[in-house]
Amino acid sequence: MIELQGVTKTYRKGRVEVPALRGVDLCIEEGEHVALVGPSGAGKSTLLYLIGLMEEPTSGSVRLFGEETARLTDAERSRLRGRTIGFVFQAFNLVPQLKAWQNVALPLHYQRRPRREQRERALAMLERVGLADRAEHYPSELSGGEEQRVAIARAMVIEPRLILADEPTGNLDRASGRVVLELLETAVEGGATLVIVTHDPEVAARAGRVVRVVDGRVARG
């Protein structure tokens, strides 16, 4: 389902080139629950963003659902991302000017679904994550745990084949973190693939497979 071969990614900061990934080979099957672990700056998030088509590799191949992503246009990448991949970030990344339900409905908006359907599905998803009563609130009016549950609702509203989570519990207390993980695992039970970046051994332990990233390379896969 996800296949990376010889993937490198180098960032340029001014005149300095900073290698983030130095040749990654990785294969993730459909329905897997994979944890990406490793020290800070090892390239875990970069790997996650490459899988999520949020960035393009400097070299190498990324195949997603059997499709070589390098050949896709921006519109095709956007469509693939919007219809099949759900993202959950450590910093929640909600749009501050939109209400909770509008944030959840955002991917449906870009799929040009009717506004009524957007609202109904967003409200249903908020109910699933236990935030039906917070639908009309803005992100600034929510707690950190609530914000992340809204972010998970946004990721799941499209019924994704792949969920990518970048330290989803990193900014949360233990109780909230547990709720978030349970929600993500519910999605896996429904057949989605979950790739989760974490520093937390407890979170990693709940994954079906742990992939260690060290210094831009996959140490064990």
């Binding site: 956007s78 990344n93 870009y110």
Partner: peptide, 16 residues
Amino acid sequence: TRTLGIRRAVGASRGR
């Protein structure tokens, strides 16, 4: 820019 990034993450194309 950050908001634009979020919108791109949930499927918005550049043109959109």
